[in-house]
Amino acid sequence: MIVELRTYHCAPGRLPALHDRFTSTTLGFFEKYGIRQVGFWTNLTGATNQSLTYLLQWESLAERETKWNAFQADAEWIAKRAATEAQTIIVERIEVQFMAPTGYSALR
């Protein structure tokens, strides 16, 4: 198993728009492509409260490449994402890490 850690740093004041896009659009596409989410979090403390962090679970990097690329190339997803940013961008920067659990991890 591989876990993908994704952090989206939003433009000022745009975190609510990102939440809306995930609940009304993105999660449906994740389901369509078999993308398994572990959970989503926002920051209570730290440098910013304008970011969203989430985890995705994959069997392998090959599975991730196949499913993520299909999702990203979906014409309907591209159009809906563009519509949510028609007036201004939502996400300024994305950080991505891939992690493998240790032998003593509760999540394996």
Results as ranks from 00 to 15, higher is better:
Glu65Met: 10
Ile94Pro: 00
Tyr54Gly: 02
Leu56Asn: 01
Cys10Val: 03
Gly103Gln: 13
Trp68Ala: 12
Ile90Ser: 03
Lys32Gly: 01
Pro16Ser: 07
Phe22His: 10
Thr42Trp: 04
Glu59Thr: 07
Lys32Arg: 15
Thr53His: 05
Tyr8Ser: 05
Ala100Met: 13
Glu4Thr: 04
Leu18Pro: 00
Leu5Thr: 04
Gln72Ala: 14
Trp41Val: 09
Leu56Cys: 07
Leu61Asp: 08
Trp68Leu: 09
Leu5Gly: 06
Met1Thr: 10
Trp77Val: 08
Ile2Val: 10
Gly39Thr: 14
Ile78Asn: 06
Glu59Tyr: 00
Asp74Gly: 07
Gly28Glu: 02
Gly34Ala: 15
Arg64Thr: 01
Gln72Lys: 06
Gln87Lys: 15
Glu63Pro: 00
Gly39Ile: 09
Thr45Phe: 11
Gln72Gly: 04
Arg108Trp: 02
Ser24Trp: 05
Cys10Thr: 15
Thr26Met: 08
Ser60Ala: 04
Gly103Lys: 09
Thr84Asp: 08
Arg64Pro: 01
Trp58Ile: 07
Leu27Asp: 07
Gly39Tyr: 08
Ser24Leu: 14
Thr42Pro: 03
Ala82Glu: 07
Gly28Met: 10
Tyr8Val: 07
Glu31Met: 08
Ala75Glu: 15
Ala73Gln: 13
Thr26His: 03
Ser24Ile: 01
Ala62Asn: 07
Gln87Glu: 15
Ala106Gln: 13
Arg36Asp: 15
Asn69Asp: 15
Glu59Cys: 03
Glu92Val: 02
Thr66Met: 11
Ser51Val: 05
Met99Asp: 01
Thr7Trp: 02
Thr42Phe: 04
Thr7Val: 13
Arg36Pro: 04
Phe40Gly: 01
Val91Ser: 05
Ile90Gly: 03
Thr88Asp: 07
Ser51Asn: 11
Glu95Tyr: 03
Ala17Cys: 06
Gln57Ala: 15
Tyr104Arg: 09
Leu55Val: 06
Glu92Phe: 05
Asn69Pro: 01
Ala70Gly: 04
Leu15Asp: 01
Gly103Leu: 13
Leu61Asn: 00
Asn43Tyr: 01
Thr26Leu: 12
Trp77Thr: 12
Asn49Gly: 14
Val3Pro: 00
Ala62Glu: 14
Trp77Glu: 14
Trp68Pro: 00
Val3Asn: 09
Arg93Phe: 08
Val38Asn: 06
Ile2Gly: 04
Ser60Met: 13
Gln37His: 15
Thr7Asp: 02
Ala11Trp: 02
Phe29Gln: 09
Leu56Met: 05
Leu27Pro: 02
Leu27Gly: 05
Ala86Lys: 10
His19Thr: 09
Thr88Lys: 09
Arg21Tyr: 11
Gly39Gln: 09
Gln97Val: 00
Arg14Glu: 13
Glu92Met: 08
Tyr54Trp: 15
Thr102Gln: 14
Ala100Ser: 08
Arg36Gly: 07
Ala82Asn: 07
Ile94Glu: 14
Ala47Asn: 12
Trp58His: 09
Phe29Gly: 05
Trp58Lys: 08
Glu31Cys: 08
Leu107Glu: 13
Met99Trp: 09
Leu18Met: 14
Ala82Ile: 06
Glu76His: 06
Met1Trp: 02
Gly46Lys: 01
Ala106Glu: 15
Ala11Tyr: 12
Ala100Leu: 12
Ser24Gly: 12
Gln72Glu: 06
Thr45Pro: 00
Ala86Phe: 07
Gly28Ile: 10
Val38Gln: 10
Ile78Leu: 11
Lys67Arg: 15
Thr7Pro: 00
